[in-house]
Design a protein around this nucleic acid. Structure first.
Lengths: 222, 222
DNA sequence: CAATGTACTTAGGATAGACTAACTTCGCTG
DNA sequence: CAGCGAAGTTAGTCTATCCTAAGTACATTG
């Protein structure tokens, strides 16, 4: 069995290698909240194991092996199933599910995972709109288009919202900006990139800064 | 926050001090599956903390302080709520809930505990019949009368079954011996203490040895 | 009351996972 | 191309939790 720490490293490397091909020591350290030296040590250990979960090269960072990728996806699947459960069945607000799921994801059995999946009706997306890998660990591709990239006049539907900042989630929730919400870009101020948005059928508009609009991912209106 | 190990020690000491006033090093070691030396060391550390959770005296074993008792009851509450959830909502069989709950009990938040309690409708007993401490950590007293103590002719209702052996639970489950099941003692063989029982409305009888009948606790028929 | 067995403790050490401090690499800039 | 800064590594520690081996305390029993 993998330790919780190992699972956290795998999850982090997985998400960092979505864009760049390799995850750097510093980025991993920042995401995990540990020192760079700790990361170097841990990566060396992981890469030197019998069945290595990562491929690590000095000063070039880490990438997941096929085995590592599978383990990472299993943890991500657990995490997102749990988030969905916490939100839908226990009534946790969507800004509180992340931390709880981060602790639970390391201790549930495969049997728990399967039964929870069934109880929830085999959900495909978690409360933030992130896709849930299936039992086969296939994961649908999610939108990579940040709201910040849209031009005035464009319409879009919110696909997902970064789950990293609870404060942000709470704020957006209050303004009904959730996966599925339809938005229209009314204006973008030239220097600060503030965006004036019309939110679906809701009365009025809202202005969001670029730190926010870069955390919201959308599908351009078909 | 307490570590999982500390919570396990507290839980174990709690259950061992139900009967005897103090928990001995050896019994704790056996229950936890660690060496006696580890237990001695751990108890010393726990007792020497700022706010000690246990009272430890050399060669006399450990007892919980009021604070330790409260923490122990919180863990037991988590454990039993989780067992109830696993059985009732996820459909785990009653012999599989214990191990899963043992891992989950250390990582759930107070918010999770409360919301789960509400979702389950504030249950008072877990699937084995053990009482669930309430939010105030009050715990109803459960039956201490082992089935093994009954005489031929007596009738009783199963109150709870020890959850320590999954094999036993599976076996008893197959024969419909669960909390609430009504039993009649038909005969007790004099030397081996085998007990011939009539199980409620079920066809036929069953013979159980003393290793089994000592794990089943009952209420004598009113 | 000495011998013995069981329960308990001490001493010394292992491992996982983290830290700080100090050093190395390397790309970029002037 | 020397120098600087950021990223990365090494070395040495620390804490939690466990271990084995060896010794101690105490009750029982001949």
């Amino acid at each position: 069995m993998l330790s919780g720490a190992t699972e956290d490293y795998l999850k982090t490397i997985f998400s960092l290698t979505r864009d760049s091909g390799r995850a750097g020591t510093k980025d991993i350290a920042t995401k995990l909240g540990v020192s760079q030296a700790s990361v170097t040590g841990y990566l060396q250990r992981l890469a030197g194991a019998e069945l290595p979960l990562i491929d690590y090269r000095k000063r070039e960072g880490a990438a997941l092996t096929e085995e590592g990728r599978r383990k990472a996806l299993r943890v991500i699947r657990n995490h997102r199933l749990l988030e969905t459960f916490l939100h839908r069945m226990l009534g946790f607000s969507w800004d509180r599910v992340h931390d709880e799921a981060c602790r639970l994801e390391h201790v549930i059995s495969a049997e728990f995972e399967e039964k929870l999946d069934a109880l929830l009706g085999y959900p495909t997306h978690d409360p933030h709109g992130d896709p849930i890998p299936g039992r086969d660990l296939d994961m649908p591709i999610n939108s990579r288009i940040a709201l910040a990239e849209l031009e005035p006049g464009e319409e879009a539907v919110v696909d997902r919202v970064s789950d990293s900042d609870p404060e942000l989630l709470s704020y957006l929730g209050k303004h009904a900006i959730l996966p599925g919400t339809r938005l229209t870009v009314k204006a973008v101020s030239p220097f600060d990139r503030n965006m004036k948005l019309c939110v679906e059928k809701k009365r009025g508009t809202i202005v969001l800064g670029p730190l926010v609009t870069r955390q919201i991912f959308v599908e351009r209106n078909a």
